[in-house]
Computed example of a mutant assay.
Amino acid sequence: MVQASENPQVRPVLPRTPHVTYRMADPKTALAEPGTLAVFGFGAGAPDSDDPRWLRVALECFDAPAPLELWQVDGDVSCGRHDAVRWSTGGGWLFAAIELNERDFGGTEATARHAYAELRRFMGTREQSVLRIWNYISDINRGDGDAECYKQFCDGRAAGLGDFFAEGFPAATAIGHHNGEHLLQVYLLANGDPGTAIENPRQVSAWRYPRQYGRTSPGFARAMLMPARDALAISGTAAVVGHASAHEGDLEAQLNETLTNLEALLATADMPAGFDTHSPLKAYVRRPVDAPRVREILQQRLPGVPVLLIHGDVCRSELLVEIDGWRFA
Protein backbone atom coordinates (compact mmCIF):
# COMPACT_ATOMS: atom_id res chain seq x y z
CA MET A 1 0.00 0.00 0.00
CA VAL A 2 1.29 3.47 -0.87
CA GLN A 3 1.36 5.82 2.09
CA ALA A 4 -0.04 9.35 1.72
CA SER A 5 3.35 10.86 2.57
CA GLU A 6 4.91 9.03 -0.40
CA ASN A 7 2.40 10.31 -2.94
CA PRO A 8 1.70 14.05 -3.21
CA GLN A 9 -1.51 13.24 -5.08
CA VAL A 10 -3.02 11.64 -1.98
CA ARG A 11 -4.40 14.11 0.56
CA PRO A 12 -5.66 13.29 4.03
CA VAL A 13 -9.39 13.50 4.55
CA LEU A 14 -10.03 16.45 6.87
CA PRO A 15 -12.86 16.22 9.40
CA ARG A 16 -16.15 17.77 8.41
CA THR A 17 -17.00 20.90 10.38
CA PRO A 18 -19.54 20.29 13.16
CA HIS A 19 -23.12 20.67 12.05
CA VAL A 20 -24.56 23.72 13.84
CA THR A 21 -28.32 24.07 14.21
CA TYR A 22 -30.95 25.81 16.32
CA ARG A 23 -33.70 23.51 17.51
CA MET A 24 -36.60 23.38 19.94
CA ALA A 25 -35.72 20.32 22.00
CA ASP A 26 -35.25 19.01 25.51
CA PRO A 27 -31.55 19.29 26.49
CA LYS A 28 -31.42 15.67 27.71
CA THR A 29 -32.75 14.46 24.38
CA ALA A 30 -30.27 16.57 22.42
CA LEU A 31 -27.34 15.45 24.55
CA ALA A 32 -28.33 11.81 24.05
CA GLU A 33 -28.20 12.05 20.25
CA PRO A 34 -25.19 10.41 18.56
CA GLY A 35 -22.39 12.83 17.75
CA THR A 36 -23.50 15.65 20.03
CA LEU A 37 -20.36 17.65 20.84
CA ALA A 38 -22.03 20.57 22.65
CA VAL A 39 -25.47 21.99 23.45
CA PHE A 40 -26.19 25.59 24.46
CA GLY A 41 -29.23 26.99 26.23
CA PHE A 42 -29.85 30.72 26.48
CA GLY A 43 -30.90 32.82 29.43
CA ALA A 44 -32.24 32.22 32.92
CA GLY A 45 -34.95 29.87 31.66
CA ALA A 46 -32.46 27.28 30.41
CA PRO A 47 -32.11 24.31 32.78
CA ASP A 48 -29.03 23.18 34.65
CA SER A 49 -27.10 20.06 33.69
CA ASP A 50 -23.94 18.38 34.96
CA ASP A 51 -23.07 17.17 31.45
CA PRO A 52 -19.75 18.83 30.43
CA ARG A 53 -21.17 19.35 26.93
CA TRP A 54 -23.96 21.61 28.21
CA LEU A 55 -23.58 25.36 28.70
CA ARG A 56 -26.28 27.78 29.80
CA VAL A 57 -25.23 30.99 28.08
CA ALA A 58 -25.77 34.13 30.17
CA LEU A 59 -27.60 35.93 27.36
CA GLU A 60 -31.35 36.25 26.99
CA CYS A 61 -32.98 35.40 23.68
CA PHE A 62 -35.78 37.64 22.38
CA ASP A 63 -37.66 34.50 21.31
CA ALA A 64 -39.56 32.66 24.01
CA PRO A 65 -39.11 29.82 24.50
CA ALA A 66 -35.57 30.01 23.17
CA PRO A 67 -34.26 27.23 20.94
CA LEU A 68 -31.13 25.26 21.78
CA GLU A 69 -27.95 25.49 19.75
CA LEU A 70 -26.49 22.09 18.86
CA TRP A 71 -23.02 21.16 17.61
CA GLN A 72 -22.90 17.67 16.16
CA VAL A 73 -19.99 15.75 14.65
CA ASP A 74 -19.33 12.56 12.74
CA GLY A 75 -18.17 10.00 15.29
CA ASP A 76 -18.41 9.04 18.92
CA VAL A 77 -18.05 11.76 21.55
CA SER A 78 -16.33 11.58 24.94
CA CYS A 79 -16.34 14.31 27.57
CA GLY A 80 -15.02 15.25 30.97
CA ARG A 81 -13.55 17.99 33.17
CA HIS A 82 -10.00 19.23 33.66
CA ASP A 83 -9.82 21.49 36.72
CA ALA A 84 -12.22 24.37 35.85
CA VAL A 85 -12.45 23.44 32.16
CA ARG A 86 -15.25 21.28 30.80
CA TRP A 87 -14.57 19.57 27.49
CA SER A 88 -15.80 17.12 24.88
CA THR A 89 -14.16 15.60 21.84
CA GLY A 90 -15.26 13.62 18.81
CA GLY A 91 -14.89 13.45 15.05
CA GLY A 92 -11.54 15.21 15.29
CA TRP A 93 -13.05 18.22 17.09
CA LEU A 94 -12.68 19.61 20.61
CA PHE A 95 -15.11 21.77 22.59
CA ALA A 96 -13.84 23.40 25.79
CA ALA A 97 -15.48 25.91 28.12
CA ILE A 98 -14.79 27.75 31.36
CA GLU A 99 -17.16 29.82 33.50
CA LEU A 100 -15.87 32.02 36.32
CA ASN A 101 -17.39 34.58 38.67
CA GLU A 102 -15.52 37.89 38.63
CA ARG A 103 -16.16 38.36 42.35
CA ASP A 104 -13.94 35.37 43.06
CA PHE A 105 -10.96 36.91 41.26
CA GLY A 106 -11.23 40.64 41.92
CA GLY A 107 -12.61 42.03 38.69
CA THR A 108 -12.74 41.61 34.92
CA GLU A 109 -9.03 41.76 34.14
CA ALA A 110 -7.97 39.22 36.77
CA THR A 111 -10.83 36.90 35.84
CA ALA A 112 -9.97 37.00 32.14
CA ARG A 113 -6.31 36.37 32.94
CA HIS A 114 -7.20 33.34 35.07
CA ALA A 115 -9.69 31.96 32.54
CA TYR A 116 -7.29 32.16 29.63
CA ALA A 117 -4.39 30.80 31.65
CA GLU A 118 -6.59 27.80 32.54
CA LEU A 119 -7.59 27.31 28.90
CA ARG A 120 -3.97 27.62 27.80
CA ARG A 121 -2.89 24.95 30.30
CA PHE A 122 -5.69 22.68 29.17
CA MET A 123 -4.89 23.14 25.47
CA GLY A 124 -1.29 22.30 26.33
CA THR A 125 -2.51 18.75 26.96
CA ARG A 126 -3.97 18.60 23.43
CA GLU A 127 -2.31 18.79 20.04
CA GLN A 128 -5.05 20.91 18.52
CA SER A 129 -5.45 24.38 17.07
CA VAL A 130 -8.03 26.78 18.51
CA LEU A 131 -10.11 28.02 15.57
CA ARG A 132 -13.03 29.86 17.19
CA ILE A 133 -13.69 31.44 20.62
CA TRP A 134 -16.77 33.01 22.24
CA ASN A 135 -16.54 35.40 25.22
CA TYR A 136 -19.55 36.59 27.22
CA ILE A 137 -18.71 39.33 29.71
CA SER A 138 -20.69 41.01 32.47
CA ASP A 139 -21.38 44.75 31.92
CA ILE A 140 -18.92 44.95 29.04
CA ASN A 141 -19.15 48.75 28.66
CA ARG A 142 -19.00 49.65 32.37
CA GLY A 143 -16.19 52.08 33.22
CA ASP A 144 -14.39 54.84 31.36
CA GLY A 145 -11.23 54.87 29.29
CA ASP A 146 -8.82 52.05 30.04
CA ALA A 147 -11.01 51.08 33.01
CA GLU A 148 -13.86 49.98 30.74
CA CYS A 149 -14.64 46.29 31.30
CA TYR A 150 -13.97 45.29 27.69
CA LYS A 151 -10.55 46.93 27.71
CA GLN A 152 -9.83 45.26 31.06
CA PHE A 153 -10.89 41.95 29.53
CA CYS A 154 -8.50 42.44 26.60
CA ASP A 155 -5.63 43.17 29.02
CA GLY A 156 -6.39 40.07 31.08
CA ARG A 157 -6.90 37.80 28.09
CA ALA A 158 -3.51 38.79 26.64
CA ALA A 159 -1.78 38.25 29.99
CA GLY A 160 -3.35 34.81 30.41
CA LEU A 161 -2.50 33.72 26.88
CA GLY A 162 1.08 34.91 26.70
CA ASP A 163 2.39 33.89 23.29
CA PHE A 164 -0.16 31.10 22.79
CA PHE A 165 -1.51 32.71 19.59
CA ALA A 166 1.88 33.88 18.33
CA GLU A 167 1.24 32.16 14.99
CA GLY A 168 -2.15 33.77 14.46
CA PHE A 169 -5.43 34.55 16.18
CA PRO A 170 -8.67 32.53 16.00
CA ALA A 171 -12.04 33.97 15.10
CA ALA A 172 -13.84 35.33 18.16
CA THR A 173 -16.85 37.10 19.64
CA ALA A 174 -17.02 39.26 22.79
CA ILE A 175 -20.49 40.32 23.96
CA GLY A 176 -21.81 41.79 27.19
CA HIS A 177 -24.60 40.17 29.19
CA HIS A 178 -27.03 41.42 31.85
CA ASN A 179 -27.68 38.42 34.09
CA GLY A 180 -26.29 40.12 37.20
CA GLU A 181 -24.04 37.24 38.27
CA HIS A 182 -20.76 38.82 37.12
CA LEU A 183 -19.95 35.74 35.06
CA LEU A 184 -17.23 35.43 32.48
CA GLN A 185 -18.01 32.62 30.06
CA VAL A 186 -15.47 31.50 27.47
CA TYR A 187 -15.79 28.54 25.14
CA LEU A 188 -13.90 27.38 22.07
CA LEU A 189 -13.80 25.02 19.13
CA ALA A 190 -10.50 23.38 18.15
CA ASN A 191 -9.22 20.84 15.65
CA GLY A 192 -6.00 18.95 14.98
CA ASP A 193 -5.66 20.73 11.64
CA PRO A 194 -5.28 24.50 11.30
CA GLY A 195 -7.84 26.69 9.62
CA THR A 196 -7.24 29.76 7.48
CA ALA A 197 -7.71 33.14 9.13
CA ILE A 198 -9.74 35.60 7.04
CA GLU A 199 -9.51 39.38 7.32
CA ASN A 200 -11.94 41.98 5.97
CA PRO A 201 -10.40 44.37 3.41
CA ARG A 202 -12.87 47.03 4.59
CA GLN A 203 -11.49 46.92 8.14
CA VAL A 204 -8.21 47.32 9.97
CA SER A 205 -7.21 44.01 11.53
CA ALA A 206 -8.25 44.02 15.18
CA TRP A 207 -4.73 43.43 16.52
CA ARG A 208 -3.59 46.60 14.70
CA TYR A 209 -6.10 48.97 16.29
CA PRO A 210 -4.64 52.29 17.46
CA ARG A 211 -4.15 53.14 21.14
CA GLN A 212 -7.55 54.84 21.48
CA TYR A 213 -9.17 51.40 21.75
CA GLY A 214 -7.17 50.36 24.79
CA ARG A 215 -3.73 49.34 26.02
CA THR A 216 -4.16 45.91 24.45
CA SER A 217 -5.62 45.50 20.98
CA PRO A 218 -8.33 42.85 20.62
CA GLY A 219 -6.80 39.57 19.53
CA PHE A 220 -8.98 37.90 16.90
CA ALA A 221 -9.32 37.20 13.20
CA ARG A 222 -12.42 38.48 11.40
CA ALA A 223 -13.35 34.91 10.38
CA MET A 224 -11.87 31.43 10.16
CA LEU A 225 -12.14 29.09 7.20
CA MET A 226 -12.40 25.60 8.66
CA PRO A 227 -9.75 22.97 7.79
CA ALA A 228 -11.97 21.10 5.31
CA ARG A 229 -12.93 24.48 3.74
CA ASP A 230 -16.55 23.46 4.14
CA ALA A 231 -17.55 26.30 6.48
CA LEU A 232 -16.62 29.82 7.50
CA ALA A 233 -16.81 30.68 11.21
CA ILE A 234 -17.62 34.40 11.33
CA SER A 235 -16.44 36.55 14.23
CA GLY A 236 -18.60 39.18 15.85
CA THR A 237 -19.15 41.71 13.05
CA ALA A 238 -20.53 45.22 13.43
CA ALA A 239 -20.60 48.59 11.64
CA VAL A 240 -16.85 49.19 11.73
CA VAL A 241 -15.11 50.64 8.67
CA GLY A 242 -11.35 50.94 8.88
CA HIS A 243 -11.06 50.99 12.64
CA ALA A 244 -13.87 53.48 13.30
CA SER A 245 -17.48 52.85 14.28
CA ALA A 246 -19.89 54.05 11.58
CA HIS A 247 -23.40 55.55 11.70
CA GLU A 248 -23.56 56.36 15.40
CA GLY A 249 -27.18 56.39 16.61
CA ASP A 250 -28.60 55.00 13.35
CA LEU A 251 -29.71 51.38 13.85
CA GLU A 252 -30.68 50.64 10.25
CA ALA A 253 -27.51 52.13 8.80
CA GLN A 254 -25.40 50.15 11.27
CA LEU A 255 -27.21 46.93 10.40
CA ASN A 256 -26.79 47.52 6.67
CA GLU A 257 -23.08 48.27 7.16
CA THR A 258 -22.74 45.08 9.17
CA LEU A 259 -24.31 43.05 6.37
CA THR A 260 -21.92 44.66 3.89
CA ASN A 261 -19.01 43.59 6.11
CA LEU A 262 -20.35 40.04 6.21
CA GLU A 263 -20.50 39.90 2.42
CA ALA A 264 -16.93 41.20 2.24
CA LEU A 265 -15.81 38.32 4.48
CA LEU A 266 -17.58 35.76 2.31
CA ALA A 267 -15.95 37.17 -0.82
CA THR A 268 -12.48 37.19 0.76
CA ALA A 269 -12.92 33.56 1.83
CA ASP A 270 -14.15 32.55 -1.67
CA MET A 271 -17.44 31.44 -0.15
CA PRO A 272 -20.74 31.75 -2.04
CA ALA A 273 -22.37 35.14 -1.62
CA GLY A 274 -25.28 35.44 0.77
CA PHE A 275 -26.57 33.15 3.50
CA ASP A 276 -28.98 30.23 3.26
CA THR A 277 -31.20 28.08 5.44
CA HIS A 278 -28.19 26.05 6.63
CA SER A 279 -26.16 29.07 7.79
CA PRO A 280 -27.14 29.89 11.39
CA LEU A 281 -26.43 33.43 12.62
CA LYS A 282 -26.77 35.30 15.90
CA ALA A 283 -27.76 38.96 16.04
CA TYR A 284 -26.82 40.65 19.32
CA VAL A 285 -29.03 43.70 19.93
CA ARG A 286 -28.14 46.30 22.55
CA ARG A 287 -31.56 47.91 23.07
CA PRO A 288 -34.58 45.60 23.42
CA VAL A 289 -36.76 48.22 21.73
CA ASP A 290 -34.71 47.71 18.55
CA ALA A 291 -35.23 43.93 18.36
CA PRO A 292 -38.45 43.99 16.25
CA ARG A 293 -36.86 46.28 13.66
CA VAL A 294 -33.70 44.18 13.51
CA ARG A 295 -35.81 41.07 13.01
CA GLU A 296 -37.81 42.77 10.25
CA ILE A 297 -34.72 43.95 8.35
CA LEU A 298 -32.98 40.58 8.62
CA GLN A 299 -36.08 38.75 7.40
CA GLN A 300 -36.12 41.07 4.39
CA ARG A 301 -32.38 40.91 3.67
CA LEU A 302 -31.77 37.28 4.69
CA PRO A 303 -35.02 35.42 3.98
CA GLY A 304 -35.11 31.92 5.43
CA VAL A 305 -31.79 32.27 7.26
CA PRO A 306 -31.97 31.00 10.87
CA VAL A 307 -31.12 33.98 13.08
CA LEU A 308 -31.09 33.85 16.87
CA LEU A 309 -31.98 37.31 18.16
CA ILE A 310 -30.23 37.96 21.47
CA HIS A 311 -30.07 40.80 23.99
CA GLY A 312 -26.37 41.60 24.21
CA ASP A 313 -24.08 44.61 24.38
CA VAL A 314 -21.47 45.15 21.68
CA CYS A 315 -17.92 45.88 22.85
CA ARG A 316 -18.18 49.54 21.77
CA SER A 317 -20.96 51.47 23.45
CA GLU A 318 -21.92 53.36 20.27
CA LEU A 319 -22.59 50.13 18.36
CA LEU A 320 -26.18 48.90 18.54
CA VAL A 321 -26.02 45.51 16.81
CA GLU A 322 -23.49 42.80 16.00
CA ILE A 323 -23.79 39.57 14.01
CA ASP A 324 -21.76 36.38 14.07
CA GLY A 325 -22.35 32.82 12.91
CA TRP A 326 -21.60 30.28 10.22
CA ARG A 327 -21.60 30.06 6.45
CA PHE A 328 -21.52 26.44 5.29
CA ALA A 329 -20.35 25.73 1.74
Rank of each mutant, 00 (worst) to 15 (best):
Q3A: 15
A4P: 14
N7G: 11
V10K: 14
V13M: 15
V13R: 12
V13G: 12
L14P: 00
P15T: 07
P15K: 10
T21H: 06
E33G: 09
E33M: 05
P34L: 10
G35R: 02
A44D: 14
A46F: 03
A46Y: 04
S49D: 12
D50E: 12
L55E: 05
R56G: 01
V57C: 02
V57T: 04
L59G: 05
L59F: 03
E60Y: 08
L68M: 09
W71F: 12
C79D: 06
W87C: 01
S88Q: 04
S88G: 08
G91N: 01
G92L: 05
L94F: 07
F95D: 07
A96V: 01
R103Y: 08
F105A: 00
G106W: 08
G107T: 02
G107L: 08
T111K: 03
A112R: 02
A115V: 04
Y116T: 07
A117E: 15
L119E: 09
L119T: 11
R121C: 06
Q128E: 14
I137Y: 00
I137H: 09
S138N: 08
N141G: 05
R142H: 15
A147Y: 05
Y150W: 09
A158W: 10
G160P: 02
G160R: 01
F164M: 06
E167W: 10
F169H: 08
P170F: 06
A172W: 00
T173E: 12
T173Q: 08
T173I: 10
A174K: 14
G176F: 05
G176D: 13
N179W: 14
L188G: 10
L188R: 03
G192P: 09
G192N: 10
G195Y: 01
P201M: 08
V204N: 10
V204T: 13
S205I: 08
R208K: 14
R208M: 13
Y209Q: 09
Y213T: 05
Y213F: 15
S217L: 06
S217F: 04
S217C: 13
F220Q: 12
A221K: 02
R222Q: 12
L225Y: 01
R229I: 03
R229Y: 08
R229K: 15
D230S: 06
A231F: 07
A238C: 09
A239P: 08
V240T: 10
G242D: 14
H243T: 11
A244F: 08
E248D: 11
Q254D: 06
L259G: 11
L259V: 13
D270H: 15
M271C: 15
G274L: 12
G274E: 14
G274Q: 13
D276C: 14
D276T: 13
T277N: 08
H278Y: 12
S279V: 06
V285G: 07
V285A: 11
R286P: 03
R286T: 07
V294S: 04
I297D: 06
Q300P: 05
Q300A: 11
R301P: 09
R301M: 09
R301S: 10
P303K: 12
G304N: 09
V305G: 03
G312M: 01
C315E: 14
S317C: 07
S317L: 03
E318V: 13
L319N: 05
D324S: 11
D324Y: 00
F328R: 08
F328L: 10
A329I: 09
